[in-house]
């Protein structure tokens, strides 16, 4: 996970079962999901992720590149996290899914629930992008009227 930004803060969180790599890019938090996501790992991971979910408008990217095995508890955790961030007007995106993670999410019918990105950088950029619906798609019908009025005004 190399974001390259100066404001990025990379830290490793030590827990009983391992080290969770965490990185912040402005208000966005990127967390690396552990290789094995069973009940025990889910508990440890949630201890770290939990406070972030309770912040105002949490923006979280989960890096699934290391995931090799995921139980249904892991999938439930992802769904729970998504639910929590959406409640607080935030968003959670998945990035760099390993083939194993992709297969498991598809198998459990949740792959379409999440927004997924090929890399963490893409996922971070997506938070900065202006949503398509916010951009006017067509020129309004009255724009021509104003143009014509301008021409008349100049002529007079």
């Amino acid at each position: 996970m190399n974001m390259g930004g100066k404001q990025d803060l990379d830290r490793r969180v030590k827990t009983r079962k391992g080290v969770f790599k965490m990185l912040t890019s402005g208000p966005i938090v990127v967390m690396q999901v552990p290789e094995v996501l069973k009940v025990g790992e889910v508990h440890d991971f949630m201890q770290e992720l939990g406070p972030l979910l309770e912040s105002n408008r949490p923006r979280i990217v989960l890096d699934l590149s290391q995931v090799r095995s995921m139980e249904s508890a892991g999938v439930e955790m992802l769904l729970h996290c998504l639910e929590e961030v959406l409640k607080r007007d935030g968003d959670l995106k998945l990035a760099a899914l390993s083939p194993e993670a992709e297969v498991i999410l598809e198998l459990m019918r949740v792959s379409r629930v999440f927004e997924t990105f090929l890399t963490c950088e893409e996922a971070i950029r997506s938070f900065h992008a202006i949503p398509a619906e916010a951009v006017p798609q067509n020129t309004p019908w009255y724009a021509n009227v104003f143009n014509e009025l301008g021409v008349v005004k100049q002529a007079s």
Partner: peptide
Amino acid sequence: NLINLQHNVSLQITDPVV
């Protein structure tokens, strides 16, 4: 044991409910 031919991956599902 599961082999997914689309993603070309072989994995073992440890969760017995799956």
